[in-house]
Design a protein around this nucleic acid. Structure first.
Lengths: 330, 330
DNA sequence: ATGAAAGCGCTAACAA
DNA sequence: TTGTTAGCGCTTTCAT
């Protein structure tokens, strides 16, 4: 049962007080070079590492960041977790993953827990949450980074910049003389809005066409919902010749149904996904999509948190640029 | 700035000592019913929740379990993380995700950190680690669950039971009169063995054929490696008519190359994957594969850890059964 | 059945 | 430039 080495042990070995050891580590007050050297030697010799539990208790701040998302098993969030973890590793911070299963009660419970446990920070993709649900966390002074399509009040935020990429997608589609644009959207979130849908509608107008209400269907972010949505659209008397999807999973479902119905993609209908999930390039035809890079979101989240740890006080919104990826489906 | 409610606050409100509050929570010594009721009422009224940092400092045990894997972004491990997290949630335990990027130094560093931070447990899929790398962790009394193909010494372990499923795959392939069996294996791990390869070799013999050395190629678990491996196999004068892959990602790469070379799957060559990753059913032809269920691994890991927390002392090995999934590629 | 109090290892006043 | 020391909130031994 290997004994734990404490600061007191290091202090004794270096012939100083434990306060000095602490200050050598934190750099929060000047330490004479020779003292510092002695302490560092003792640390190395004894193999000391700080007990972050004790530090947390003392400072009232843990070294944990909570990543709160609807589903970590979703490739986008999995990649986000991986990147965030690697970026935060150097700061000695661990990432705790929390699944909300898209349920508001879970989202709220997790947020409350982050406050109770005095987490160092929270990175969250809210699904049913409203801006006021964040009051407690921000009041507790816990840095929060929200990754969402819409503004969420006085928190750091990462928002996608999809206008350009979506415009390129529309350009490609309309250049192929397609005018009957449709969308299979994801579920409406708590804010009631749907930025992807609204953006597409706005842009469609600019391209001299439109996104008529009857060509918008809605479902979960699942393959089944994608298939159902596509079937529904094909039933319309005003049949679309281009279908935009809320994400790639939906698009894959649409692809399934198209094959089943004998609808040729992209011959009869052009299909555009969203996110560029790993499998977007695996299906046939390969999915033309709007890529939203999880790695960059993770890096931005880590950077925003890092700035907050350093005590910077202004809330920032970082925009992450989505990229149009032209493949075979449109 | 909302004040934190401590046990002392609860004790004061209930007219008892903080020790009693602690014992009401832990049940480690009898408390009079009316005392208990008073304490519970105070807890509810004040909205008290224990400070797990303080508890950890005192007990020398945190409420964190580390999930140490080569890559959380890998769908298998992402699903494992999700399940583990949900199963452990009820025990008040958080899951910290740790990426090793398949590097031994990272694996060792993470294991060492788990000891230093007195984690409540570790769930690990070792990649380059040897059994003796676990000595420190077990000596520290930290429950370890290893998910691997081979035995790893005195730890709880989850091992796949793939014999039956692999036999079924071979049955299907040989029933179609295929005899020239090949494999695109993953990288050789630190133990030097490759159970999937060895199992296939053994079974092939039983089916009256073999897995000749020249029909075994090896690479990383990537799409590129799969493509390269397949190309190499198609170059052999003794050309295989059935190719087994170390995992589904490799199989997808093989599929890419087959299409490029004009090799018909399954007409010319049958292709069998491994794991049943999400995209196995997305590619065309859909992948015939040996499904290894991450959910069950996660549940088993949580169960094993739970037993250890309860103080059960024997090391157990849980076998998780893989399942043959027949689709179009073989 | 309950309470008093020590102390886990660290940080940050306050002193010198 | 460095040391002394008081806690952070909890668990648990020792008393009662």
């Amino acid at each position: 049962m290997q004994e734990r080495v404490t600061m007191a042990d290091v202090a004794r070995a270096a012939g100083v007080s434990s306060a000095t050891v602490s200050y050598v580590l934190s750099g929060k007050r000047p330490v004479a070079p020779e003292t510092r050297a002695a302490v560092e030697a003792a640390i190395a010799e004894l193999g000391f590492t700080v007990n972050s539990t004790a530090r947390s208790l003392r400072t009232g701040r843990s070294s944990l960041v909570a990543l709160i998302v609807p589903d970590i098993a979703n490739p986008f969030f999995a990649q986000l977790a991986a990147t965030l973890q690697e970026e935060l590793r150097g700061l000695g911070i661990h990432v705790v993953v929390c699944n909300t299963r898209a349920r508001r009660d879970e989202e709220r419970a997790l947020l409350a827990e982050a406050v109770q446990q005095r987490f160092a920070g929270v990175v969250i993709t809210p699904f049913r949450l409203l801006p006021r649900d964040f009051e407690a966390v921000t009041r507790a002074g816990i840095p929060v980074v929200v990754s969402a399509d819409v503004p969420f009040g006085p928190v750091d935020q990462i928002m996608p910049e999809t206008r350009t990429a979506t415009r390129q997608a529309l350009e490609r589609v309309t250049a192929a003389r397609r005018r009957r644009i449709a969308m299979i959207a994801g579920p409406r979130d708590a804010t009631g809005g749907d930025p992807r849908l609204e953006l597409l509608r706005t842009l469609a107008l600019q391209f001299g066409t439109s996104l008529p209400r009857e060509l918008v269907v809605r479902g979960e972010h699942t393959r089944e919902a994608g298939a159902a949505g596509f079937a529904e659209l094909m039933d319309r008397r005003y049949r679309p010749d281009a279908v935009f999807c809320g994400n790639d999973v939906i698009a894959v479902g649409a692809l399934d149904k198209a094959r089943e119905l004998g609808v040729d993609i992209p011959g009869d209908v052009a299909l555009v996904g969203h996110d560029d999930a790993v499998f977007a390039s695996l299906v046939r035809p390969q999915l033309t999509t709007v890529r939203y890079p999880a790695e960059e979101v993770g890096r931005a989240a880590a950077r925003l948190l890092g700035e907050r740890f350093d005590g910077r006080g202004v809330h920032r919104t970082v925009r992450v640029r989505a990229e149009f990826v032209a493949r075979a489906s449109a």
